[in-house]
């Protein structure tokens, strides 16, 4: 299963990367969602996969049985899942708002929201100084 999961996560990564390389806003959203799935699988796959042995300490004993699944990746993924919901919600609303305001979903048309599209005059003050030697 480790191999299968590695392949699944790899395909999810590939699909996610492909989607965030698109120019359409919504596709980037989908890409983000795919990437967070992929990362969760990556974390999950970093420990040995053990069926039906959750990291619980049975009643009457003070330690888990001999074989149990690694709890550390699980704790990491648990919060990651919840956070990714927050991030997805934020991204969805952000894109909805961007689309509503700019009226386009083409990222190439949004360039000027990120960088100054006009040439900016630099060092104009330098010339105003007296020229000494």
């Amino acid at each position: 299963m480790t191999w299968l999961l590695a392949i699944a996560a790899g395909v999810l990564f590939a699909a996610g990367i492909y989607m965030i390389l698109r120019r359409s806003l919504v596709k980037i959203l989908v890409g983000l969602a795919l990437l967070s799935y992929a990362v969760n699988l990556l974390l999950f796959n970093s420990a040995p996969l053990i069926p039906a042995r959750p990291p619980l300490i049975p009643l009457g004993s003070s330690a888990p049985p001999e074989v149990y699944a690694d709890p550390v990746p699980q704790a990491l993924i648990l919060t990651a899942i919840v956070i990714s919901f927050g991030v997805t919600a934020f991204a969805v609303v952000l894109m909805r708002q961007v689309y509503g305001t700019l009226g386009t979903d083409d990222l190439n048309e949004m360039r000027c929201t990120d960088i100054p599209c006009k040439e900016v005059e630099i060092a104009s003050e330098e010339e105003q100084m007296e020229e000494p030697l």
Binding site: W3, F13, P48
Partner: peptide, 30 residues
């Protein structure tokens, strides 16, 4: 590009899980 990235991640995962025997953190918590 996407396939390159995906392939690399698969490779990393297969390499990482080979070393997964070190579970001292898990043992401590347990």
């Amino acid at each position: 590009f996407a396939l390159t990235g995906g392939l690399l991640m698969t490779l990393i995962m297969l390499l990482v899980s080979r070393h997964a025997s070190d579970a001292s953190a898990a043992a401590y918590y347990a």
